[in-house]
Simulated scan of single mutants.
Amino acid sequence: MSETQARPGYLLLEDGRRFGGAYVGPETETAGEAVFTTVMTGYHEVLTDPSFAAQIVVMTAPMQGVYGIRDPDVQSRRPWVAGFVVRHLSHEIGSGPADSTLPEYLASHGIPTLVGADTRALTRHIRDAGAMRAVMAHDGVSPQQAAERLAAEPEMSGRDLATAVSTPEPYELGPLDGVAERGLVLCLDYGVKTRSLDLFRREGYRVRVVPCDTDAEALLSARPDGVFVSNGPGDPEAVPGAVERIRTLSDAGVPLFGICLGHQLIARAFGGTNYKLPYGHRGGNHPVINHATGAVEITSQNHGFSVLEKDGRIEGGDDLEITHRNLNDGTVEGLVHRERPVFAVQYHPESAPGPHDSRYLFNRFVETMRNHGSSAPG
């Protein structure tokens, strides 16, 4: 993607606010929910995080692309963002090694990109008005075309995106080289990131990643040591069959660990409900307090929904206990079942990108699986 390929373009928000810039991408307009992330690095991980499906992502850090694109940083089989908005886009790589530049990567995948937009003003507007639908296009797209495309874009509430990003076929990854095999973890793929799988493989587990609509009996027949309920996009209330599937696994005694969307789905499986946040939590600097230790973890987050609580308890989830809480807005960030080997957190402990404060949660799940053995009936 060169400067000569760029043409005047714009981002039009649902409330009528318009932000201009240099547009590079497909001739047709694109639409999605406009959101922002405060990560300072990790643009490749952002682009390939399935949790960003159907979203136009605004990067608040002004300079993007300074260390290029590195293939090992990819987090899924392809980029998922609907669009990408940056203040400055570097065509030079300041530190290496790198496999390509960020502009080359964006162009090769046809990702609509708006460069030079006032991302600070755009971020402040989303914080004030909330995440909303938006259209991104070059200036050859008429206001009427943009309005029609915007009206056709579904709202995020009520939208099942997890089924769309889930793997179409099961696949299995063995332990990392040189690590003795310890057992089997099943991953219910609602939009899992590669780093999560690698952390289990590092501990000696085979990881079998399965479509999120896999029948619970088929999951149990594999006799897993545990089930990882992954992150993913969209409204947790709209994911078909998730509650019944998770509850069946837990009723069989299988240890469960969920993150992000998985946290919301586990809460639902035990009576909880979810609600949409005004503009969500997306970034690598969110402070979360661990009630068990009193420690404050700086966490990586990417979600637009949360678990509802009332009077310090998860509403409807009497068997669940709140373990972690966001220090910015007080929302629920972690839960544990009072009797079963089930726990979950709202954030991304795999930290790709982000700080590593919460990676202990993967070790905690390994310990849980070792203590319970293979619980599924056989």
Rank of each mutant, 00 (worst) to 15 (best):
T60E: 15
A216V: 11
A295W: 06
F362K: 01
L176H: 05
G226V: 12
R17V: 10
H44W: 03
L106H: 02
P154C: 04
K276E: 11
D235Y: 06
G204S: 04
V165M: 01
M1K: 07
A267K: 13
D128I: 00
R325F: 03
I56R: 00
N326I: 01
F270T: 08
S157C: 05
Q145K: 12
S196Q: 02
G174R: 13
G378P: 10
A151L: 08
A267I: 04
S196C: 15
A180Q: 14
G378L: 05
F270L: 12
H372T: 15
A151C: 03
V336D: 04
G272F: 08
V74T: 13
Y43C: 05
V74A: 09
L12K: 07
I246T: 04
E244N: 02
L173C: 13
I246R: 10
V342Q: 00
D73M: 13
A53D: 09
N371H: 14
G330V: 07
R70Y: 14
L47P: 11
T113E: 01
E14W: 01
T48G: 01
D189L: 08
T41D: 15
M40W: 00
H281D: 12
R340C: 01
M63K: 01
G271T: 04
I56Q: 02
P240T: 05
S166Y: 00
A242C: 08
E3V: 14
V366S: 06
Q144P: 00
T273V: 11
A121R: 13
E104H: 10
G158H: 03
H291F: 14
S358G: 15
A61D: 13
D15W: 06
E367F: 06
A147W: 02
V239R: 12
H91T: 14
A352P: 00
G304E: 10
V254T: 10
F200T: 05
A352E: 13
L277K: 08
E315M: 09
G334C: 09
R313I: 02
P278H: 11
T368F: 03
A222M: 14
R268H: 15
H138L: 00
R77W: 14
A238N: 09
A137F: 05
R149N: 04
P211T: 12
N302R: 01
R282T: 04
L13T: 00
F270E: 02
G140Y: 07
A6Q: 12
A98D: 07
V307L: 10
R70H: 13
T119M: 07
D49M: 05
G158P: 10
G183W: 10
S230F: 03
E244P: 00
V207L: 15
D215S: 08
Y10I: 06
T368K: 02
T119I: 11
T38A: 09
L102R: 02
W80A: 01
G234K: 03
L219P: 04
T299H: 12
V307G: 06
G183Y: 12
R208Q: 14
